[in-house]
Design a binder for these strands. Structure first.
Length: 294
DNA sequence: AAGAACTCCTGTTGGC
DNA sequence: TGCCAACAGGAGTTCT
């Protein structure tokens, strides 16, 4: 579900209440999400301070004092919601305790030392939380094989060209694969390909070097990925069904979608008279304009 | 080794 | 209204 912009938005929302704060108590309401929750989870977290809350790809990463790091993934329907401490200035009744979602799916609740609670709610339970030693976190199986962060310098046309060399898989699947680029999902792959005017059906090897130079296609794609993700983060992510920011607010980038969810609507690209189509690739919906995406 | 299919789980939506 | 199938933002595992 949440892709990089949504996870980054959640991280920014949680950082002020979690980073540098001690977890007084952790409430665990079931044994597992997608995978079992960490052994002795509550005991390992209680009384420990979160030294940093970062993000890698679609993972939220909480580094605890004492050498352990919690890796969290929101799956398709996971959300974190902050409830302020009593007496924080809010009027009683201003804030519904919990997530605003069905409380029967409140699975993990972090109580910070100052009384704030952070609740993880996840109806589909595709999310997960894993604890691992901080010192070797980069070698963790969930982290080890991730491709570069798309907003960092490591993603560039030369990298993409090399990575796509000889790959017959289509561009859609290539970009969805977290080993190639980390953090993209169905929505932003569709949007980035549209902006780059590339067909999702094209073989990934079209990005590879020709005459020793990265292709114009690879350049356009890198630019498009960066612009789409940056704009989405600025908008607080995209809210379709479940996604909310940590303060409960909706994201609003969904209003800026050019192709996603716009089947049969006209292409918005200036000068393009095409219509947005929906096809299925690797079992998932792809939205694109066959007029301007080649 | 790459690529495709299958799997986990619940909720919503659209067709009949 | 009820029922059922299809679908939803992900990704690890298991096949071919």
């Amino acid at each position: 579900m949440p892709e990089l912009p949504e996870v980054e938005t959640v991280r920014r929302g949680l950082e002020p209440v979690l980073s540098g704060r001690r977890i007084a108590r952790l409430e665990q309401r079931r044994a597992d999400l997608r995978f079992p929750l960490p052994d002795a989870f509550a005991k390992r977290v209680a009384g420990r301070r979160i030294q940093a809350l970062t993000r890698r790809a679609k993972y939220l990463v909480a580094e605890f004092e004492g050498g352990q790091t919690l890796i969290m993934h929101l799956g398709m329907s996971g959300r974190f919601t902050i409830s302020p401490s009593v007496g924080s200035g809010k009027m009683p009744g201003d804030f519904t305790h919990g997530t605003g979602a069905d409380p029967k799916h409140d699975h993990v609740i972090f109580h910070t030392e100052d009384g704030t609670t952070v609740t993880y709610n996840d109806p589909r339970r595709f999310g997960f939380m894993v604890m691992a030693p901080t010192e070797s976190i980069d070698q963790h199986p969930l982290i080890r094989n991730l491709g570069p962060e798309p907003l960092g310098n490591a993603l560039n046309a030369g990298y993409l060209a090399a990575r796509a060399q000889g790959r017959k898989t289509d561009l859609k699947a290539f970009l969805m694969d977290q080993r190639n680029v980390a953090g993209l999902g169905n929505i932003y792959v569709c949007e980035a390909l549209h902006q780059a005017r590339l067909s999702p059906k094209r073989a990934a090897r079209c990005l590879a070097r020709t005459n020793g130079l990265p292709t114009d296609r690879a350049e356009r794609l890198v630019t498009a990925i960066r612009e789409v993700l940056s704009a989405a983060i600025d908008a607080g992510g995209s809210s379709l069904r479940d996604y909310r920011q940590a303060d409960g607010a909706l994201g609003y980038f969904q209003h800026a979608f050019r192709v996603y969810g716009r089947e049969d609507e006209p292409c918005t690209k200036p000068g393009c008279r095409g219509t947005v189509r929906r096809i299925v690739q690797s079992g998932r919906s792809t939205f694109f304009c066959s007029g301007c995406q080649r």
